[in-house]
Amino acid sequence: MALIHQATLTPTKLELLEAWLPTRSWYPGAVAAGLERVGAARFDDPADAVGVEIFLVRTPEGPLTQVPMTYRAAPLDGAGEWLIGTTEHSTLGARWVYDAVADPVFVATTAEAIRTGGHQATEYFQTPGGPLVAREPLMTMLGSGTQAKGSVAEIIRVDDGDPAVILTNVGELSVSRFPLATPPDATLTLTGTWPGGSVTLAVLS
């Protein structure tokens, strides 16, 4: 379960990404003005400490771009090069936002979802003084595997680019920056589906 606070972010996620995307060697544009969210979905952190979200965004003239992000209450040790930026959450305070391909929580939760046929977390709003209310998902995610839970995926090495390739103790996780249809030889995948389409977000081999 993911609890979504009715709060404001300063700067917003899209504002952070508009500044960050043009600094990436794999991003095709010199600017990312007018960035819009196409879809988004979250995974649960078993420790309930780190926010894990996959964003699909696009500029009016640019390609569909996947940015997995993690949200932390303190900096992640040794991950300065993967920092997208910091934002002030009106409920939670300062949040450090990371390109999640190098965050161990994202890698572990994504690899497990792919291997076990897992799906996105159900998101709930906290209403003032009232019950939790489920939110209609902006995007659904589904892993293709049928395995039982196994070893937790741990990062050995991260190679940035498109795709971002994360070598782990359970296999190689490839995260598409510009996701398309499923590669023909891929069997363990994470698919994202929203009202406008469906793409393969990641492959585990």
Rank of each mutant, 00 (worst) to 15 (best):
Gly39His: 10
Gly39Glu: 07
Gly39Ser: 12
Ala40Met: 08
Ala41Asn: 05
Asp44His: 09
Asp45Ala: 07
Asp48Phe: 10
Val50His: 00
Val52Glu: 00
Glu53Gln: 10
Phe55Val: 01
Leu56Cys: 03
Leu56Val: 02
Leu56Gly: 00
Val57Cys: 07
Thr59Trp: 08
Pro60Asp: 06
Gly62Asp: 03
Pro63Asn: 02
Leu64Val: 10
Leu64Gln: 01
Val67Trp: 00
Met69Thr: 09
Thr70Ser: 11
Tyr71Pro: 02
Arg72Ser: 02
Pro75Phe: 06
Pro75Val: 12
Leu76Glu: 11
Ala79Asp: 08
Glu81His: 14
Thr86Met: 13
Thr87Lys: 08
Glu88Gln: 14
His89Asn: 15
Ser90Ile: 08
Ser90Cys: 07
Thr91Ala: 11
Gly93Ser: 05
Ala94Val: 11
Tyr98Cys: 04
Tyr98Trp: 08
Val101Cys: 14
Ala102His: 03
Ala102Phe: 08
Val105Ile: 13
Val107Phe: 06
Ala108Lys: 02
Thr109His: 05
Thr109Ser: 14
Ala111Pro: 07
Ala111Trp: 03
Glu112Leu: 15
Ala113Tyr: 02
Gly117Pro: 03
Gly118Ala: 06
Ala121Phe: 02
Thr122Gln: 14
Thr122Cys: 11
Glu123Arg: 08
Tyr124Val: 13
Thr127Lys: 09
Gly130Arg: 14
Pro131Val: 04
Pro131Trp: 05
Val133Lys: 13
Leu138Ser: 15
Met139Phe: 09
Leu142Lys: 13
Thr146Glu: 14
Thr146Ile: 12
Ala148Glu: 15
Val152Ala: 15
Ala153Ile: 07
Ile155Trp: 12
Val158Ser: 05
Val158Trp: 05
Val158Phe: 12
Asp159Glu: 15
Asp160Glu: 15
Asn169Ile: 06
Gly171Gln: 11
